[in-house]
Simulated assay, not measured.
Amino acid sequence: MLINCVAYQEGKKLADIPIEDISEYLSHPKCFVWVALRDASPEELATMKEEFGLHELAVEDALRGKQRPKIEEYGDSLFAVIQTVEPHGDELTVGEVAVFVGANYVLSVRRDAQQGLVGVRARAEREPHLLSIGSAFVLYALMDAIVDRYFPIVDALEAELEIIEEKMFASGAGAQRDNIERLYELKRKGLVLRHAVMPLLDAMGRLYGGRVPVLVENCQEYFRDVHDHLARILGRLDSVRDTIGTAIQVNLSMVAIDDSEVNKRLAAYAAIFAVFTAFAGVWGMNFEYMPELKWHYGYHMAICSMVIVCGYMYYKFRKSGWL
């Protein structure tokens, strides 16, 4: 579906144009065309391929979707894939934006992404001195907008991790098991975002420093800024991942400690009742010449002996922290 198709010249918007007029505007000096599509159909991409002379392999990747973040060169043009990561309830949904960039055109194809990129166009149009750089600046603006949307997700992951850490020492094995489940869910979300950031971080190195495509020579410092943002996000994700790993180990230790406390209590009560069993076993043998059986207060003395010994054991277990 076509979102918009606009022609620009020297950083200023000329007009919203129909697709049929793209070829005409491409022939104008210092003019480029910016087209945005959403969930493009094969017919729409075929039309764009004909209008812009897109490479068939890049078109195939954009049509198929589910691509790994990457930046590829096709002659004097670039093809970039950036994954979008958006919160949807308790889950993170992954979409992608495929961007075709040439000297006089930019084509963005958004797929499986809810948040639009209209704000990027508005921002670029407010900065005509930067937009006059051409299609390379548009590529930067699109990448910068998508990468900046990663930061609130990282903030949410860190905030949720802090909440779990505060509850980490809550009493009860049930609470610890709930914490472990939440930590694993948090770890899974972090991996989703990491899979979007890590490949793009590696690919960004092609756009600044050393040999770079002629198309982006005038925008290297901008792409370096995006690379810096990605590096910061990756560093924070690594910190979250390490903290989650430590928290999981602590929670598992807490569960083991709780189990150990239960076992200690059971062992203490078993030892106390073993006294009753031992006394009853001795006095229950009923030998004819057993002195206690002939005592008038033998039964009362036996019960008192059991209570005294068991009470003493209970006191010692309680003092040692077993009960």
Rank of each mutant, 00 (worst) to 15 (best):
M1W: 10
M1G: 15
Q9H: 11
Q9K: 15
G11D: 00
K12D: 07
K12H: 13
K12M: 08
L14R: 13
A15L: 05
D16N: 12
D16P: 07
D21M: 13
I22G: 00
S27N: 15
H28E: 10
A36R: 02
D39H: 03
S41C: 03
S41Y: 02
P42C: 11
A46L: 03
K49V: 00
E51Q: 15
E51F: 11
G53W: 00
E56D: 05
A58F: 12
V59S: 01
D61R: 05
D61T: 07
A62G: 09
L63N: 01
G65E: 01
G65S: 00
P69Y: 11
K70P: 05
E73T: 14
L78N: 03
A80Q: 05
A80V: 09
V81Y: 02
I82D: 05
Q83Y: 09
T84P: 01
V85G: 02
D90V: 11
E91S: 07
T93I: 14
V94G: 12
V94Y: 09
V97A: 05
V99A: 09
G102F: 04
A103W: 03
A103M: 01
N104A: 14
V109K: 00
R111S: 14
A113T: 15
V118A: 06
V118S: 10
G119L: 13
E127Q: 12
H129F: 05
H129Y: 08
G134S: 01
S135P: 12
F137G: 02
A141C: 01
A141W: 02
D144I: 09
Y150C: 06
F151V: 15
P152M: 10
I153G: 09
E158A: 14
E160L: 13
I163L: 14
I164C: 04
E166K: 02
K167D: 14
K167I: 03
M168H: 07
S171H: 10
A173S: 13
G174K: 07
N179A: 13
R182F: 03
K187E: 05
R188D: 09
V197K: 00
L200E: 12
M204K: 03
G205V: 01
Y208Q: 02
R211V: 15
R211M: 07
P213W: 09
V214A: 14
V214P: 06
L215I: 06
V216A: 13
E217Q: 15
R224A: 13
D225M: 08
D225K: 12
V226L: 01
H227L: 09
H227Y: 11
H229D: 03
H229M: 03
A231M: 13
V240D: 02
V240K: 01
R241H: 09
D242C: 06
G245A: 10
A247F: 12
N251A: 14
L252Y: 08
S253I: 04
M254N: 15
M254Q: 11
I257F: 10
D258N: 11
K264Y: 06
L266R: 13
A268W: 02
A270D: 00
A270T: 12
I272S: 04
A274Y: 15
A278P: 08
A278V: 15
A278H: 04
A280I: 06
A280R: 04
F287T: 00
E288I: 08
Y289S: 03
L293W: 00
K294F: 00
G298T: 00
H300V: 12
I303C: 08
C304S: 15
S305D: 01
I308N: 06
K316D: 13
G321R: 14
